[in-house]
């Protein structure tokens, strides 16, 4: 069984990094995983996204058309991926930025005021990890502790002072899902 996740946002929001943290956590948890970025001009402004596939057997395709889970950190990402999420899948979006309702009824849309949560944790730069905390609480991909450990190991040294805020944001995102009593599976 493979689970595919797309994380998408503006360039600079850390979509690719959040995906890498998830991939590291999956690998350290003994799972098979692939991570593949969009590496076109969107890296330099515009939207950036990555695809993470996690499974128990060696991963076939590192790319999917219909992901099981999507983290959308801006409106263009919601517009692009809402039609693509697999039926029964999950679309987590930043409701601080995206004000429109979702159209699909066959997916679970999860509105997370990630921007506000991130600001409370210290910086709007923490939206990506806030969303990641929410994702791994919502879906049984990897343990939250494994993600925290991946952050500790893989946050670049030049950002060492951001480790605590990142861990704070990770747990705040997770707490939001638990407090809202959103059905997890």
């Amino acid at each position: 069984m493979e689970t595919s996740i797309i994380i998408s946002g503006f360039g600079g929001q850390g979509a690719l990094f959040a995906g890498q943290v998830l991939a590291h956590a999956a690998m350290e948890s003994g799972k098979e995983v692939t991570w593949i970025p969009s590496y076109g001009p969107e890296m330099r402004g515009g939207t950036a996204h990555c695809t993470v596939v996690i499974g128990d057997e060696p991963i076939g395709s590192p790319l999917v058309r219909n992901p099981h889970c999507v983290i959308a950190m801006n409106l263009p990402s919601v517009d692009k991926y809402e039609p693509l999420v697999a039926a029964g899948g999950r679309l987590l979006y930043d409701s601080s930025l995206v004000k429109r309702p979702l159209h699909r009824t066959d997916i679970l849309g999860v509105a997370i005021p990630a921007h506000d949560i991130a600001l409370r944790c210290g910086s709007q730069q923490l939206v990506n990890i806030t969303m990641l905390g929410a994702l791994v609480t919502l879906c049984p991909l990897v343990e939250l502790a494994a993600v925290e450990q991946a952050l500790r190991i893989h946050l670049p040294e030049r950002h060492a002072e951001l480790l605590r805020p990142n861990i704070l944001a990770l747990h705040a995102g997770a707490a939001y899902i638990r407090e809202q009593r959103i059905a997890t599976s």
């Binding site: 890498q20 991939a23 690998m27 098979e32 995983v33 692939t34 991570w35 593949i36 970025p37 590496y39 991963i59 590192p62 790319l63």
Partner: peptide, 10 residues
């Protein structure tokens, strides 16, 4: 190809 060069995997 570009996908192999850019992707990450254990």
């Amino acid at each position: 190809d570009g996908a192999l060069g850019q992707m990450m995997e254990p």
